[in-house]
Design a binder for these strands. Sequence first.
DNA 1: GCTCGGCGAGAGCGGTGCTCTCGTTCCGGT
DNA 2: ACCGGAACGAGAGCACCGCTCTCGCCGAGC
Lengths: 225, 225
Amino acid sequence: MPTARERVRAELTAEITAAARRQLAEVGAAALSLRAVAREVGMASSAVYRYFPSRDDLLTRLIIDGYDALGEAAEAADDPAAPPEQRWSAVCGAVRDWALAHPHEYALLYGSPVPGYSAPQDTVPAASRVGIVLGRILGDAARAGRLSGGGVRVPGLLGDAAVEVLGQDAPGIDDAVRVRALLAWSSLFGTVSFELFGHLVGSVEDADAYFARAVAELGALIGLD
Amino acid sequence: MPTARERVRAELTAEITAAARRQLAEVGAAALSLRAVAREVGMASSAVYRYFPSRDDLLTRLIIDGYDALGEAAEAADDPAAPPEQRWSAVCGAVRDWALAHPHEYALLYGSPVPGYSAPQDTVPAASRVGIVLGRILGDAARAGRLSGGGVRVPGLLGDAAVEVLGQDAPGIDDAVRVRALLAWSSLFGTVSFELFGHLVGSVEDADAYFARAVAELGALIGLD
DNA sequence: GCTCGGCGAGAGCGGTGCTCTCGTTCCGGT
DNA sequence: ACCGGAACGAGAGCACCGCTCTCGCCGAGC
């Protein structure tokens, strides 16, 4: 049973993060001002420090929330009953849609690191959610024998995290598959980032069609056909 | 014949950009402080405004210089006499090496856009240099008949810039090749960014070996074998 | 009922980008 | 040769930033 004090504290915390998210969407992460957040919530800047020890901690909160929202979008888009290549493109599309809808949050997650700020370990579980979805798709495809390629051993190349996300050794899953999954994962984000950060301006007319083709090519790269 | 005044102005401008680049390497773009630059050069902050109308203009200068430096590295790494897949991996390696050596400048070029700042048109030629190198490699490979795949028409998908960089229609070059080239370029960027921005920590043990494999996979994706 | 801890407000510190003014210095035309 | 004007550097000042400290308040637990 939370006391009244705890309740109002939780409410105020949520209100602060909501205002911070609004401010993030307006001015970006680097210019996120704790004072402006305080103004929007209607209290003195010093009072915010009762809830977040520093601006960086507020940023960490936003980062974790962002990873969770993106991960949730990816999970919601994945229908385990669908064929693998369809699951792949559905998840890719969901990631892109979320990025286009929340460009500043996406930039916070996958853009330049904020100088002087290093993400704490707390962010790792949330950050892994999209990777886990992709790993599940690949694992299912491999177990169903619908994953071509593979067969290469590259000891010492990958770390434990990759093996954990992409499943233990199983029929059809080896280091070559994991490497290609990682590559597809970073390529997907390269493609989304290029579009979002304006590097495709002038080169691509129809961004939707380009993305669809890119996802198909990357699916083929992984071994989904 | 430049007057003495013009000479000292050019010198001071160069000194300011040099100090700014040093500061950029230390604290990153978002924390780049014009006052600190002025301190390092040894003049009042207001005096710097005689040379750069605003902090953003100083940033633009750094961006153009960065694109030029990266483009130069890519051009230097490309040996037109070598086989295409070797040229591809050499240029990819040069891009990654430059990024690892100048992480903050790379983040400035390919990371989150600075909010409220939009790159002026002046940056486009410098930004295109790496793309042009990649386009030349693909064009040469296509003319030599060493590019597999292609054969797909996707009218209205790509813009003029892509056609310009990747050559007019030629035997072996069509929209499908250009799309894959763009995809390879953004995937390369995604791979480098993931490594640089820390998204591969825990998943990849041997970054050099991973990158080499990624480049090889991407080369195959383009159609180089 | 009283005390003590959480709380909000306000002032203050050193920093930022940017503007304005003021005295100087140098360049070009007469 | 000189003088007017343009370029220049310095300094003060404005509004903002993150963060700290102190102070008065108020509610929850002993």
